[in-house]
Design a protein around this nucleic acid. Sequence first.
DNA 1: CGGATGATTGATATATCTCAAGAGTAGTGG
DNA 2: CCACTACTCTTGAGATATATCAATCATCCG
Lengths: 231, 231
Amino acid sequence: MGQVCAHCGVRDRSLCGSLNDTELETLSRLGRRRRFARGEVVVWSGDEASLCANVLSGVLKITASTEDGREQIVGLLYPADFLGQPYAPSADFTITALSDVELCTFPQKGFERELDDHPRLERLLLQRTLDELNHSRAWMLLLGRKSAQEKVASFLFDMARRLDRANCAGRTDTFELPITRGEMADVLGLTIETVSRQLTKLKAAGIIATPTVREITIHNPAALAALAEAA
Amino acid sequence: MGQVCAHCGVRDRSLCGSLNDTELETLSRLGRRRRFARGEVVVWSGDEASLCANVLSGVLKITASTEDGREQIVGLLYPADFLGQPYAPSADFTITALSDVELCTFPQKGFERELDDHPRLERLLLQRTLDELNHSRAWMLLLGRKSAQEKVASFLFDMARRLDRANCAGRTDTFELPITRGEMADVLGLTIETVSRQLTKLKAAGIIATPTVREITIHNPAALAALAEAA
DNA sequence: CGGATGATTGATATATCTCAAGAGTAGTGG
DNA sequence: CCACTACTCTTGAGATATATCAATCATCCG
């Protein structure tokens, strides 16, 4: 097993977790660690060379945009998530680092060959892609049919659940938002002002608190869940 | 090769197209033709037995709903499309026949075994799922960031392109909508009235015409495309 | 022909956006 | 360590796109 994988923090949670040490040989030779600073674009929509990678640390956004600059965040990537589009001739979305980020990158063609050689790797990618599709469809309900209040409540709930899972330490009712208000707006299909107002409302109702602007404390998860589904 | 596949209209366009006659043996024994009438629900969200199937004829919708009954169509299924969620413990969305429909159904577990046995089948499913994910993400931009006018124009454009592809006869500028205004509204995250008004606007501008309420003629594709991206 | 369903059109209400100002917060350099 | 600058966030007032409510009009089918 290559040097790279030996001290990989996400080894068992990433796609690579499906491979044993021997199988990792070739993949590890293919992988290159790369760092990106906050704000840097990792993949431009339209790029021909569609990179594949595992996220080692940090958070990234996947965005779609209209020509006149309106932006929709269509996905967030966390450590152990897979990034990229095997088999795609070009990238369809732009991927940007939201924090300083460390990736384990693979050339697309090389990664595709690994998929050929390792059925378990492909199986896991299929399952993850199916999950992503489900999540993205659930988000379509939010974008198309939910009110601003429901959107913000759903988002906080989703985020709490997701971070709770990463944070295996156990459930905390306070977590740090990995994104700004503006980015929340881009996830929810709202404006920054509307997001801010909804957060204020939730605070006034005693359902949440914001110790700092980036931290969220959920005081009343039940009420939050109720608002997420019908407000 | 079983009786079933011998006269299958979508044999070469469906997932099964990846298999040769010998490989189709077991799959064909697994498959059962089933008909559903317009309006019938094929899969209920929450169903434990998640059915897998190929669409032989007709159109179906995949929907997500809030508890209080608001509905968002998150996908449409056409002939040769694959339906179902291998590996999912239960269905996440409801699938309903929009017209009379004919399916070639497989039990989930059986289909999963076929995926084990036929890498090419699995590969094709992976590629289709990746495509679906892309399409669904592109739709998130529409739902979150586009105006009603852009939504309707985008929808017509998308539909024309999609039907053009199926309709290998060549490009026609008139096509039949497979769905009602209400269903269009559920695809676009709008109300039925707003959809209707936007169509009226497009007619008034001479960009489209509606010979019958279910038919759309595109007089000015360039103008329609322009409205789809920035209006 | 008549009833049901779906589509259009109109009048009004309202949630969210837009524009604008001010208040936090964080990073930088003296 | 403080002050300066640049962001980001919050809050307000007003504008507007879309939803809601309601009536009429087409279309289909028995």
